[in-house]
Design a protein around this nucleic acid. Structure first.
Length: 817
RNA sequence: GCCCAGGUGGCGGAAUAGGUAGACGCACCGCACUCAAAAUGCGGCGGGGUAACCCCCCAUGCCGGUUCGAUUCCGGCUCUGGGCACCA
């Protein structure tokens, strides 16, 4: 063993050993229970960033911990390889997206390997390869045939100069990022997946995911947005038909003073035909992007259509307005406006001088005459005809049945969740396997013709989808009638690939099926690790696909991820590391200077995984110092001269050994249950500090020191696997850490005879005493009251009561003066 | 605008089930070693009061509440971050 800690030598030796022993290549024949540990696969953007290093270290720590605890651990890796950046790079550098992507993958694979992750690299997948995406196309066809995929139009951001569809992130302040001109909303046909068919199950199953953060489940619940309410039908005044709206506040129905429809609503479009001013207004609503964040920040604008509807219960004529705050995508694309009890309606009514009619009185509040704000609280109905005096809750039921009686409404459930539009007018994605035939319509590609291969040799210009100009791709024959036909040139949303990759890792080489029997062994994923930014979309789509695959008979589990750990971001100087801010840290540079173990240790020590992590060069230095000290401690121990002195089990040694076993208990809990690696490291550091205080050199001391070092190396090994692998080999020359077991707790060593507790007077700390662990409450209380530090706070006062918390404190509460 | 988090010393953070606020590390200061420096080791380190390392007071973004006791629970506010369906 060398006296000096040389990270590069240690790490290359360890990595070579692991590779030659095929240590992390797994199969399903093990008799140990399986543990599938998955970190979100990276987009091959060029090189690893610190967020990746953090993500994959967290996953690796858990994988290695569970391996030491006897599990058959699968930790795979792959590439989320389709996506927009490859096209942007192609436009900028003229490199085809495929070349750019494969080069990035090769480079990043090398970087990942240098981190020393316990990955089964034989299961690597890249979603841009036909042997992966053919199964996505296969499933698409199954869904198409089941009616779970359908076609309708949807709004997109249209750049009128570049003549192309823009992603939301490519729209800045309502303008195209390259052209700089205002974007427009445009309706185009798209394929949709019926995720709303699964809304109820996706919502309900959240209650059965105890291993998910509450925060994520709340976000998903709100996103699905189940609401129970009433669909109200307002008969049109000038013709047959009704205007449908959905409301959760039927109790306010008698306070409706107008109705508002989205600019794209058929009623608005019809009214605009004979009204050029309205047509111009509707046209102006088309300006700007489609994202909800953009739309909801717009100043509220509207215009009367000149049409009226009848109130379903009073028959009163109510004006129909077009309003830019009404979204076509939610509910019926129309709302009943109750300005007195809805903030947006209120603001709009004020702006356009529409009447405000209060119908709910909440609490002791006085009835407003000319109110200055909307009150959205539930209360008691006023000025509401036969419903006056009812509570909101009762009124909702009564009004719903009154509507049902006249055939102008019904109670129903509405979801905020919308069906998933998966068509993208982009080249670098999975081709949608549909052939358009003028006679047969949209015909799915027959299974025998899969995959529909994406041509990789292309020139990307940024204007339109290059696939559309490739006649060899587009021109084909109809599989049904044989006549001339053309292929769909849209590709799928890249969220589709990442919605099922976790299942493919189980059988990555299967050429006969999307997933095979091995998926039943590995699924569900026991631990999923990834960024909190994926809390809604990716995780919801992945849950949805799991259910689709289950219903296609491929797998049997209901949910894909048993436990979810959402990691926080890596910050430097208080903000997210990014190229544009110039505050990035290069992982390669870091590993070159200090080694992967130091990088891993710092990242795990700096904060708990689910919080953001503030980068600190000095902190990295500190992590490196600790590893150097660990190395030197083991080296010094091994180099101790022989001794014959037997020695005594001193108080210090007993305490040290107790600390070791307390640390094992704590670290095991920190890795396994709490997943707070920072506190695990801190307690190992404390153990190390105690170790270094021991001066005794006899055989008894040495035995305990060895016990400490061997255990410490195992405790740290999930976080800093290379140095621990080598140190373990030095401590136990004929053994390998790869075959080691997790540390065992000696309950005997944990036993204590005395403990310290604190004494409070009126909740304030006034003293501390050491007591026998088995002391009775009475004994402790009398000791506390007679304590010299405490007595003076009790002088002349009457004790009202004494609170006793075993192992912690005695609180003496005095009478008030 | 809507939904979800977070705010504790000079800094990263700890306090796990309402029970000793500041573990562990960084930075800084002092000392030892050294011709010197680096490295290493030892000690100190929230603010204020005080002759005092006795002790007391203040202190976990802000305001209020519940409790014997609140960083932790509740209400209101504020700032920062994540997401908002075509970035991944």
């Amino acid at each position: 063993m060398q006296a000096q800690y040389m990270p590069s030598e240690v790490e290359s030796k360890a990595q070579q050993d692991w590779e030659s022993r095929r240590a992390f290549i797994v199969d399903e024949s093990s008799d140990r229970p399986k543990y599938y540990c998955l970190s979100m696969f990276p987009y091959p953007s060029g090189k690893l960033h610190m967020g990746h290093v953090r993500n994959y270290t967290i996953g690796d720590v858990l994988a290695r911990f569970h391996r030491l605890n006897g599990r058959n651990v699968l930790q795979p890796m792959g590439w989320d390889a389709f996506g927009l950046p490859a096209e942007n790079a192609a436009i900028k550098h003229g490199t085809p997206p495929a070349d750019w992507t494969y080069n990035n993958i090769d480079f990043m694979r090398g970087q990942l390997k240098s981190l020393g992750l316990a990955i089964d690299w034989e299961r690597e997948i890249a979603t841009c390869k036909p042997d992966y995406y053919r199964w996505e196309q296969w499933l698409f066809i199954q869904l198409f045939e089941k009616g779970l995929v359908y076609k309708k139009t949807a709004q997109v951001n249209w750049d009128p100069v570049d003549q192309t569809v823009l992603a939301n992130e490519q729209v800045i302040d309502g303008c195209g990022w390259r052209s700089g001109v205002p974007v427009e909303k445009r309706e185009i046909p798209m394929y949709f997946m019926r995720i709303t068919d699964y809304a109820e199950e996706l919502l309900e199953e959240l209650d059965h995911l105890p291993g998910w953060p509450e925060q994520v489940k709340t976000m998903q619940r709100n996103w699905i947005g189940r609401s129970v309410g009433v669909e109200v039908h307002f008969p049109l005044l000038s013709e047959d038909g009704v205007l449908k709206v959905f409301t959760t506040r039927a109790d306010t129905l008698m306070g409706v003073t107008y109705v508002a429809v989205a600019a794209e609503h058929p009623l608005a479009e019809k009214a605009a035909r004979n009204n050029p001013v309205l047509a111009r207004f509707i046209q102006s609503c088309r300006q700007g992007g489609v994202s909800e964040a953009f739309v909801s920040n717009l100043e509220k604008k509207g215009m009367s259509t000149g049409d009226y509807v009848r109130h379903p219960l009073t028959g009163e004529a109510l004006p129909v307005w077009v309003a830019n705050y009404v979204l076509m995508g939610y509910g019926e694309g129309a709302v009943m406006a109750v300005p007195a009890h809805d903030e947006r309606d209120f603001e709009f009514a004020k702006e356009y001088g529409l009447p405000i009619k209060p119908v709910i009185c909440s609490g002791s509040e006085r009835i407003m005459s000319s109110c200055d704000k909307a009150t959205t609280d539930y209360g008691v109905l006023i000025d509401s005809g036969v419903f006056t005096g009812l509570s909101s809750k009762e009124a909702i039921i009564r009004i719903a049945s009154a509507l049902e009686e006249v055939g102008l409404g019904l109670s129903r459930v509405q979801y905020r969740l919308r069906d998933w539009g998966i068509s993208r007018q982009r080249y670098w994605g999975c081709p949608i396997p549909i052939i358009h035939c003028s006679l047969c319509g949209d015909v799915p590609v027959p299974e025998r013709d899969l995959p529909v291969i994406l041509p990789e040799a292309v020139t990307v210009t940024g204007a339109g989808n290059p696939l559309a100009y490739m006649s060899a791709f587009v021109e084909t024959t109809c599989p049904r009638c044989g006549s001339e036909a053309h292929r769909e040139t849209d590709t799928m949303d890249t969220f589709v690939e990442s919605s099922w990759y976790y299942a493919r890792y189980a059988s990555p080489d299967s050429s006969q099926a999307m997933v095979d029997d091995r998926a039943r062994y590995w699924l569900p994923v026991d631990q999923y690790v990834g960024g909190i930014e994926h809390a809604i979309l990716h995780l919801l789509y992945a849950r949805f696909f799991n259910k689709l695959m289950r219903d296609a008979g491929l797998i049997t589990n209901n949910e894909p991820f048993v436990n979810l750990l959402t990691q926080g971001m890596v910050l430097k100087d208080g903000s997210k590391m990014s190229k544009s801010k110039g505050n990035t840290v290069d992982p390669d540079q870091l590993i070159k200077q200090y080694g992967a173990d130091t990088a891993r240790l710092f990242m795990m020590f700096a904060s708990p995984p689910d919080q953001s992590l503030e980068w600190s060069d000095a902190g990295v230095e500190g992590a490196f110092r600790f590893l150097r000290r660990l190395w030197k401690t083991v080296y010094d121990f091994m180099a101790l001269p022989e001794t014959q002195e037997v020695g005594q089990m001193s108080v210090e040694l007993i305490a040290l050994r107790r600390q070791l076993h307390e640390t094992i208990v704590k670290v095991t809990d920190d890795y396994g249950r709490r997943q707070t690696f920072n506190t695990a490291i801190a307690s190992i550091m404390e153990l190390m500090n105690s170790f270094l205080k021991i001066q005794e050199v006899h055989l008894t001391a040495r035995k305990i020191q060895r016990e400490l070092l061997e255990n410490m190396v195992i405790l740290l090994s999930p976080i800093v696997p290379h140095i621990c692998y080598v140190l373990y080999g030095a401590l136990r020359p004929n053994e390998s850490l790869l075959d080691a077991q997790w540390c065992l707790v000696d309950e005997e060593a944990l036993k204590k005879e005395e403990e310290e507790i604190v004494i409070q007077v009126n909740g304030r700390l006034r003293g501390r005493i050491t007591i026998p662990v088995n002391a009775t409450r009475e004994w402790v209380e009398s000791r506390a009251e007679s304590d010299s530090q405490v007595e003076r706070f009790l002088a002349g006062k009457k004790i009202r009561k004494v609170v006793f918390v075993p192992h912690r404190l005695v609180n003496i509460v005095l009478e008030n003066e």
